[in-house]
Simulated scan of single mutants.
Amino acid sequence: MVELNRIELHTIGKLITPHKTIENIPVQAVGGREFTGIAELVPELAVGLESLDGFSHMIVLFHLHKITGYSLTVKPFMDTKLHGIFATRSPRRPSAIGMSTVKIIKVEANRVYFEGADMLDGSPLIDIKPFFAKVDNVPGTISGWLESKDNDVAEKTRSDDRFA
């Protein structure tokens, strides 16, 4: 593996979800609507959640802490062909960062309750950003190899042991 430059990130809390093992987790938040989770910030950061309850959705960035190593080409969960890692959202990445857009249920103290949990319980929380519909929805986008898949492939697909 190539030696990559390192940076220092600070986690802001952890994610609490019903997913205790990597297998059978929804591979995208849209497929995990029935699963709720909690983004629990360290108490000293709770004031940073002020006004988040006015948004319907948030983007959650987290560390894929159970993933080791990486592959530059992978067979993603939603396809049977190899693709470059940066053309997928597969978890075995040079920087093991996960990203999910989830629906906010409520904000209480240092906790944000959300719908769409597609991450492992205990995942270190890196950041929360509000979803801005006017700038995060980009009209006319093209989704590469995913365009040839059924519209609901992300909703139906579950993880297996290929990245464990």
Rank of each mutant, 00 (worst) to 15 (best):
L45E: 14
F55S: 13
R89T: 15
G98M: 13
F62A: 05
N151R: 14
L82E: 15
V60C: 02
T68D: 14
L120N: 00
A46Q: 13
H10C: 04
G69L: 11
K14M: 07
S159V: 11
G98A: 10
W145M: 07
H83R: 04
F35A: 04
T21C: 09
V30W: 04
D79G: 04
G122C: 00
S51M: 03
F132S: 04
T157N: 09
L82P: 10
M58I: 15
Y70W: 10
A154R: 12
G54L: 01
V135S: 13
R33F: 14
N151W: 08
D136Q: 01
P124L: 06
S51L: 01
V112T: 09
N5M: 07
M58E: 12
T88G: 07
G54H: 11
F86V: 11
L82M: 12
D121A: 01
R162F: 13
G98I: 11
S143C: 05
A133Q: 04
T141Y: 15
I126V: 07
D160Y: 11
K129H: 11
D121Q: 03
E147M: 05
L9M: 06
S143M: 10
F132V: 12
R89L: 15
G31I: 01
A87Q: 15
K106P: 13
K103W: 15
I128G: 00
L52G: 01
R92Q: 15
G98P: 07
T17H: 11
I7Y: 07
L125T: 00
T68N: 07
L52C: 05
T141R: 07
S143G: 03
P18D: 08
V107H: 12
N151Y: 14
T157L: 02
I7L: 12
I16K: 11
D79R: 00
E115I: 06
E8N: 08
P139K: 09
S100V: 11
S51I: 05
M1P: 06
I142V: 12
L52V: 13
S95K: 08
T17L: 02
E147F: 06
K14C: 06
S143R: 09
I142M: 09
E147H: 06
N137L: 10
F77M: 01
N24Y: 00
L52W: 04
V60F: 06
G69A: 10
I12H: 04
